[in-house]
Design a protein around this nucleic acid. Structure first.
Lengths: 123, 123
DNA sequence: GCAATTACGCACCTTTTGGTGCCTATGGGT
DNA sequence: ACCCATAGGCACCAAAAGGTGCGTAATTGC
């Protein structure tokens, strides 16, 4: 077995990367850091996500062993999601990214403005 | 100005997150960590990327101030890309993620297999 | 003088992603 | 008796992502 390498498109590490390189996964996993959370709570916490994408992403994360789904088997439904150990380790790295985005979004905005201004006047 | 928060869909931090939550950005930025790199070298290094996506992603990264494009103004063309200071700080966080993917891809594979097996036999 | 090289832009087409509305079940409140 | 709330499934539709092939410009090697 060759050393896993994300630069190799045929390597399973690439699949792993594609799984986590999703804006919803990058928000859901950190959102679960606070402990077991219900569907509705995630829906409220993560602005702009639809029920469909939440369900879909959670299912995908569960399938890959990052999230554990616990169905209380009651009616009305009560389902809780929480991080597995694996998911927890990933979540920490994602939180770093989320915080980077929060800290530097203003820099990106400024750079974009400069770039676009140069395009416009330079024409 | 409110504190930037990735969970707010109307916040520019969310835009920043969407920019970096792209599988190509997650490969290109770390690939530039080794110093200025040419288009063709990136094309070779990053398996599976098309010329179109490479150009497109690089342009987007440049627009947001993460990558600096240096055109040598020669024919045939010689263009080099390198990380800005901002891009460099992001790249470090992305490298952590890439390495996470490489280290844990096998765990994800195993979890997926277990999950799917349970589905099949459970039916 | 003819082909190959480099870093693209552009147009066309397919595939994937994501949104929306409609459906389910049942215990608890009024 | 009735309707709401919860966590989705499913089908249909719009939008975005991404692949492929074609063109381009000047210089170098044959």
């Amino acid at each position: 077995m060759a050393a896993p390498n994300v630069y190799d498109s045929a390597c399973s590490a690439r699949d792993a990367l594609e799984l986590i390189a999703s804006k919803w996964a990058m928000l859901i996993l950190p959102a679960l850091s606070g402990g077991p959370t219900r569907n509705s709570a995630l829906l409220r916490k993560i602005g702009g996500i639809s029920q469909k994408m939440l369900t879909q992403t959670l299912k995908d994360l569960e399938r890959n062993g990052l999230v554990i789904r616990q169905d209380m088997q009651t009616v009305p439904p009560h389902v809780e999601y929480r991080l597995s150990t694996l998911g927890s380790s990933l979540s920490e790295a994602l939180i770093v990214l989320d915080r980077w985005a929060e800290r530097h979004s203003v820099d990106l905005d400024a750079a974009r403005e400069r770039f676009d201004a140069a395009r416009t006047e330079g024409a």
